[in-house]
Design a protein around this nucleic acid. Structure first.
Lengths: 144, 144
DNA sequence: ATACTAGGTTACTTTTAGTAACTCAAAAGT
DNA sequence: ACTTTTGAGTTACTAAAAGTAACCTAGTAT
């Protein structure tokens, strides 16, 4: 055949990318990766998903306590967005004072697993990235 | 004993999340997932990585042509950020008019593979998300 | 009457994303 | 001799998003 195993893999990668990019099927607004990551790629969404993945069910202020630094508004905005995408289920108990419980849906659970995969990669490679940033910073100093 | 397989898996997930969250080791500024996703989770970075993954080496304006809708500034900003993190290598040829070539580093390649995993999940689950959004939109209408 | 509670909104400010026009230095066209 | 073109960017600006601080609600306890 004349192609090595590595070259074969590279071809597969290219095909996959092609499929991702021209994904006009299923009323997808556009590249699904972009769409997906654009939605929950921000830090608050990630924290919320991780915390809900850890704790099964959580109330608003419990979550607020667990996610250090988040404000009330940011938490509502984040949770609404996750609810909108069907990753989080929100249950209101009509009491006074109000009680609201949040939990991951099955979809949210499956996304969590993907996030953990990514976390493994991140942990494994973080030192490379940190090193690269330091190299870059030093180069920048020399330029000025 | 006395725990089912599912419960066992859940415990593993919890442990993993715990490890991610209190990651004070290795001078990590914070949760690596957040740090990582916060950097290249935006649409332009994703497109750039996918395009560089598809094409080996690309010049600035080639990339600009491939990523539809990106402006010059956004492309430079994106590429600089990826370069800073060591995901992309930038080579300048001191000619007139200038020539600059971009390519993925090994780190970038390995991230690309992760992105493709995520893309698989996204393609598999996009219809769920779209459906959830429609449900949510209808509920919102009723409220007003 | 005042304070507290949980789970938010509203109005405002700061950061970031994004656009349009300009630059640089040489080569080629008119 | 002047204008245009070329690639790879900057600079100066505007639109949009993220984030903060103060307020609301309705019932209960002091």
């Amino acid at each position: 055949m004349g192609v090595t195993k590595d070259e074969n893999q590279q071809v597969k990668v290219q095909e996959k990318i092609d499929k991702i990019m021209d994904d006009k099927e299923a009323a997808a607004p556009c590249c699904p990766v972009k769409d997906i990551l654009g939605r929950f790629g921000d830090k608050w969404s990630i924290y919320a998903i991780l915390m809900l993945g850890r704790n099964e069910k959580l109330r608003f202020n419990e979550l607020k306590g667990l996610i250090s630094g988040i404000s009330q508004r940011m938490l509502t905005v984040t949770l609404r967005s996750l609810e909108e995408d069907g990753l989080v289920k929100r249950t209101i108990f009509p009491e006074i004072p109000p009680r609201v419980e949040y939990e991951l849906t099955d979809l949210g659970q499956s996304l969590l697993l993907q996030l953990l995969e990514l976390a493994d990669w991140a942990k494994l490679n973080l030192h490379h990235i940190v090193a690269a940033r330091e190299r870059y910073a030093k180069q920048e100093q020399k330029r000025t």
